[in-house]
Structure formats: structure tokens, C-alpha cells
Write a protein that binds this DNA or RNA. Structure first.
Lengths: 206, 206
DNA sequence: GTCTATAAGGAGATAGAC
DNA sequence: GTCTATCTCCTTATAGAC
């Protein structure tokens, strides 16, 4: 609600001090647990054992912290997961590896990813567009892969575009209910969801 | 909609004045668009063309508005959708009708439902437990239905519990990307997702 | 790099007149 | 039922000493 007073310079400083990754990790966890708008700079500073003023030495604003969390993890997903679709192995195997890795990585990085997806709207349009670019690139690459699989007769599903959306809906929802103490580990859950995605939803038959 | 009158306890007043549905509709839309924590009572009052004090005549607090939005729509889903699983028609048909109706209703009531699911954490534990009760009842009823279908050989899927979660992940995700101006209407999208759910995911074969 | 102290303003909520 | 005026607390962010 409270609007930033000054310092609405258009470009983030990105000082990237040595402590900033540690501070971002603390902030991401708090944003995940309570929501970005319910976490004050006081609380982040407290969690890190520093003063608010010191926090402002490392980051120009609260919005810049959100941007760094959001942009960092989004870029990471594009850079580390999309390459799994390349290579010489069978297409269903490559897609399964992407789905499994996506689910596992999403769980490991849930403080960052959930914050990125939930709080994207709170970024300034210019910054938001940057993050959106990575998200769209990731989605469209997977969609094109699935469309190619359907064209080659490897997958069999109506409307590959919507099926890709359904696939992402499925694998993104896990984090809302997964309990690490439950019957299945995240690795087992990822394998089960990969079967649901590639086998059931997309209709791959060995 | 019979609610207790004002009391001396901490319980919400639920005065249920004649204007309160209209005011809740305005609040739900704002909560949906900007997030509960980013919407002030001033903004809601402005949207309704009344003063903040008048808003407090109708509702005891901002949290009570959230509770009424959340509890109302959650109860509505239980009351109107679960009966679709009963009857004499084939089980796959009944489940398809529930999935379609759920998706369509969820779109119509997106301001209420998205607010309920996103902002559930912000309710006091006591109130939250009430809403959670409806949500769990809804989920468990559908899960039991699917488990019965698997036991009777109508559906064929590994781990019906997780498959039910995957089903809800799918049908809840639609609202995050659906565009009413797009190629498919919400009715067509619901039908496609019902096919994905019942046919592809749960392995129903006619 | 880190601190204390403080500015400027928005938040939820209420009192009391009409 | 609706209003104006106001209270108190919390928010983001900065100034300036060390």
C-alpha cells in the first residue's frame, strides 16, 4: 500500500554485494511464507540480524529485492532445464527428464519460484516484461517440442497448445500440497507426475 | 443465508445488510486484481461510492469481508457441485459433469474463488479452519468417487490419491491463463479439460 | 558496511454528528 | 445508514555519524 517515495529510478542498481545472495534467500523465504506485501523491510533485516539501513545499502528498494529473486530463478530454469530437451535419446525420455527435473527443482527452489509466480504482478511493467520474457520462452519451447512430437506421431493428444498448458498446470500445482514427510518423496512424486504427463495426458505409447 | 446477529464475542457479526452482497462483489474484484494486502478499505469504499465509516457499518473489519467472500464461495461449490456425482448415469459421465461445471463456475466466480485460494493463509486460524473444512470435504468426496471408479475397473490410474490431486491442479490452473477472447470459449475449454481429466489422466475407456 | 534516528505518508479502525 | 474528522500504528526509505 505504501508507495515508495523517491528512488524510482528506472534501472536497478544490482550492486551484487557479497552478502546479497544470503539476504535474498532470507527475503525469498519470508515472501513465500507470508506474501510479499505482508513482509516489511524490518522483518527481513531482523531475519538477517542487520538494521534496515544496512539492508538499503545492499538493495535500492524492496521492489529490487523482488526483481532479483524473480529474475534470477526464472533465468535459472531456462538455462538449466531447456537443454534437457536436446540430445539423441527418445523424445518421451527427454520430456520426462524435463518434467522430473522441473518438479524437483521447483520444490528445492520453492521460495524463489512461488514468489516469482505469485508476485509477478507487483513488479513495475518494465521489469515484469523482462521476467515474462523468460517465462514465455520456457513455455513456448516446451510447447514446440510437444507439437513436434504430435506431428511425428510420438505423442497423441488433442490440441497440443492447451495440453501444454494442462501439463504446466499439473506440475506447478504440486508445490501447493506436497508434504516432504508424506508417503512419497519429491523424486517419487516427480516420476509419478512424469508418467501422468507424458504417458496419460500426452498419450505416449511405448 | 441465515446468520447470527451481532454478539459480544470475537465472532464475526455477519449483519448481512441488504447492500453487503454488492459491497463484497466490489471487494472480491479488487482483491482478485491487486491482492488482499494491497487493497485498502479506502479503495473499496471509493469503488462503492461510500465512505470508509459506512463500510465499517456493514462489516466489522477487512478480515471479515475476506471471510465472507471465502466462506461463501467455498460453501457454494460444495452445495452445488458435489450433488452432480450422485445419480444413475455412468460414473465417467458424472465426473465429467462435475469437472465441466467446476471449471465453468470457477471462471464465472473467479474473483471469489481465486481470492479464497490465494488469501486463505491470511485468515485467523479459527476462521481458516472453517473454510478448510469445506475445501477438504470437496476434495475427499471427489477422491472417494475416483477410488471407487478405480476399484470397479471403470478408471485405470496409478495412485488414485495423487491422481485426484493432479486433476485438481489441472482444473485450477486454467484461470491463470484463460482469455475469454481466445479461440476456445470457457465451455469448450471445460469440455477439453474434462476429456483430459477423465479420459487421459484417469484412463477411462468407453 | 553498519548503525541510530527520523521523515512522510498510508493502513485499519473509531467517535460522534446528522 | 451515512458522513467528517481523527487516532494510532506501521510502512518504505533517507540522513548522517562511525
Amino acid at each position: 500500500m505504501t508507495q515508495p517515495r523517491a528512488s524510482q529510478t528506472n534501472a536497478p542498481r544490482f550492486k551484487d554485494t557479497s552478502r546479497s545472495p544470503e539476504l535474498l534467500a532470507i527475503a525469498a523465504k519470508l515472501f513465500y511464507e507470508r506474501g510479499y506485501s505482508n513482509v516489511g523491510m524490518r522483518l527481513i533485516a531482523e531475519g538477517a540480524g542487520i538494521s534496515v539501513a544496512t539492508l538499503y545499502y545492499h538493495f535500492a528498494s524492496k521492489a529490487e529485492m523482488l526483481l532479483q529473486i524473480t529474475l534470477g530463478v526464472t533465468k535459472e530454469f531456462v538455462d538449466t532445464l531447456l537443454p534437457l530437451l536436446e540430445g539423441d535419446t527418445a523424445m518421451d525420455e527427454r520430456l520426462s527428464r524435463l518434467v522430473c527435473s522441473h518438479i524437483e527443482r521447483r520444490w528445492e527452489r520453492r521460495y524463489w519460484v512461488s514468489t516469482a509466480l505469485r508476485e509477478l504482478r507487483q513488479l513495475d511493467p518494465e521489469w515484469r516484461a523482462q521476467v515474462d520474457g523468460y517465462l514465455r520462452h520456457y513455455f513456448h519451447t516446451v510447447q514446440a517440442f510437444i507439437e513436434r512430437g504430435v506431428a511425428e506421431g510420438i505423442f497423441s493428444v488433442n490440441n497440443p497448445h492447451v495440453a501444454t498448458l494442462a501439463l504446466f498446470d499439473m506440475i506447478h500445482g504440486i508445490n501447493d500440497w506436497f508434504q516432504p514427510e508424506g508417503a512419497l518423496s519429491i523424486t517419487e512424486m516427480a516420476a509419478l507426475y512424469a508418467e501422468y504427463s507424458v504417458h496419460n495426458l500426452l498419450g505416449f505409447r511405448a
